[in-house]
Write a protein that binds this DNA or RNA. Structure first.
Length: 271
DNA sequence: CAAAGGTCCTGCTCGC
DNA sequence: TGCGAGCAGGACCTTT
């Protein structure tokens, strides 16, 4: 579910509810997420005042006076704001109870999400410190990608999905970006010119920015943090469109598997 | 049985 | 030979 735009949309959705708030309690109904939630987490968070809700890659960062809660939505996670006494739904694993008596409720069917508490600077945390640049930041540019891709024969799609190279490019937007840039997803990263990396970087930025601006795209059950079923069915050009016509050349859109993930592309537009 | 939006970890290969 | 970097595949889950 969450690609970067959904995570950013979630951040923007819950952020206003966190203003001036203190965490009064943390309720863990199921601690078995991707990594077991530390039993000490509620004690660490209780009484902490939330200063800010930030995002790094697809991690949401709840910055408090004495540390940071690092939350990842995994493949199927979502947050919503609800009242304390609202009945729990299936897969509602964690509640972060605020002093307003509102609750940030974490739901995650597949349990690939995670929660970590750190007292140190968040940039030093194991999960964060080796991450590549943000795709919408200045450090991510064509020259950077070009330099990093020399003598790397990995397929370009796998390269841009590698979080050590650049964060936040998920399976949907990897396919979409490569289509917009006219680059074949299986092309070796080392065999792409600087000029073509210019196109790719522009495509990645545009596609992510557009999705953020439209409130995040979604395939299934993304729920806006305020509880509204705020679907925005983004217009994908290739993702999930195997067998349909390319809107540019009418060639049938192909589907292949790369790194155990589906890739969609146009054989004639992408080289 | 297959596939689904993520990403860390393990172990292999390759080149210096 | 040894070492690090790069890379593929496995692992973690439930639902459709």
């Amino acid at each position: 579910m969450p690609e970067l735009p959904e995570v950013e949309t979630t951040r923007r959705g819950i952020s206003p509810h966190c203003q001036q708030q203190t965490i009064s309690d943390v309720i863990i109904r199921n601690h078995r997420l991707r990594w077991p939630i530390a039993g000490s987490l509620p004690g660490k968070l209780r009484t902490q005042r939330i200063q800010d809700v930030q995002r790094r890659a697809k991690y949401l960062l709840f910055v408090t006076d004495s540390g940071t809660l690092i939350l990842h939505l995994g493949m199927s996670g979502s947050l919503r704001i609800c009242n304390k006494n609202e009945p729990v739904k299936k897969h509602d694993h964690v509640d972060i109870v605020l002093s307003s008596n509102k609750v940030i409720r974490f739901n995650d069917p597949r349990r690939f999400g995670s929660l970590h508490w750190t007292r140190q600077a968040v940039t030093k945390h194991k999960l964060i410190h080796e991450l590549g640049p943000e795709p919408l930041g200045e450090q991510f540019n064509a020259q950077y990608l070009y330099n990093i891709s020399r003598r790397r024969k990995v397929a370009i799609k796998n390269l841009i999905m590698n979080s050590h190279v650049v964060v936040g490019v998920g399976n949907i937007y990897a396919s979409e970006s490569l289509y917009l840039a006219g680059i074949h997803p299986a092309r070796a990263a080392s065999r792409i010119s600087l000029q073509r990396y210019e196109k790719l970087v522009t495509a990645i930025r545009n596609v992510l920015q557009a999705a953020i601006e439209s409130g995040g795209s979604t395939l299934n059950d993304f729920t806006q943090p305020d509880g509204q079923p705020g679907y925005f069915q983004h217009h994908f050009r290739v993702y999930g469109k195997a067998g349909q016509a390319c809107e540019h050349c009418q060639q049938t859109i192909a589907q292949i598997t790369q790194g155990q993930r589906s890739t969609f592309f146009c054989k004639s537009c992408q080289r």
